[in-house]
Write a protein that binds this DNA or RNA. Structure first.
Length: 154
DNA sequence: GCCAACGTTGGC
DNA sequence: GCCAACGTTGGC
């Protein structure tokens, strides 16, 4: 199943992912988003990489799931901003997967463009008040986004 | 910087 | 288990 993952480019952008190649998607502290990673994501699944809180916001490229889920190590790290005192190694609360870089779009596909598109405006990320950092994406939306970004099939 | 949307927390 | 208060997200 295709996905959309959000990241603030000031914190971690598609270019950062391209540089490191692969990255543990740590810091997700929302149960719904966690459940997607923990329960529904499969190795090889593609994800649109969305730049949020950016000027302009939009889809910046594509990543793919590169690991099975495992406990987010930052929940055990007292020095991390993502530390969760309620989580233990025996009973972790937060899980993550690794993402691997697939493609950086030549040009960002802006939110404004998505909203103006009949098909893509149906995506959750286009709807008002969708704060979820990970959302499932319909196959045809995924394909349409790639097409609009000038990428063929990946 | 504003504020609407919405998830989480905690008192009861 | 309700719900008000609070915190965060994220576009504008």
């Amino acid at each position: 199943m295709p996905w959309l993952i959000k990241s603030e480019p000031d914190v971690f952008s598609i270019h950062d992912l391209e540089k490191v190649g692969q990255e543990p998607w740590s810091g997700v502290r929302n149960y719904q988003a966690r459940n997607f990673m923990w329960r529904d994501m499969k190795v090889g699944d593609r994800a649109l990489f969305y730049h949020s809180n950016a000027k302009p916001p939009g889809i910046a490229g594509v990543a793919k799931v590169a690991s099975t889920p495992y406990p987010d190590p930052t929940q055990f790290d007292k020095k991390s901003e993502y530390f969760d005192p309620a989580a233990t190694e025996e009973k972790p609360r937060w899980y993550l997967v690794d993402f691997e870089h697939v493609t950086t779009f030549k040009e960002l596909l802006p939110l404004e463009t998505l909203k103006a598109d009949k098909t893509l405006s149906e995506m959750l990320v286009c709807k008002k008040g969708t704060r979820l950092s990970i959302t499932p994406v319909e196959k045809n939306h995924f394909a349409r986004a790639l097409k609009m970004a000038g990428c063929g099939a990946l």
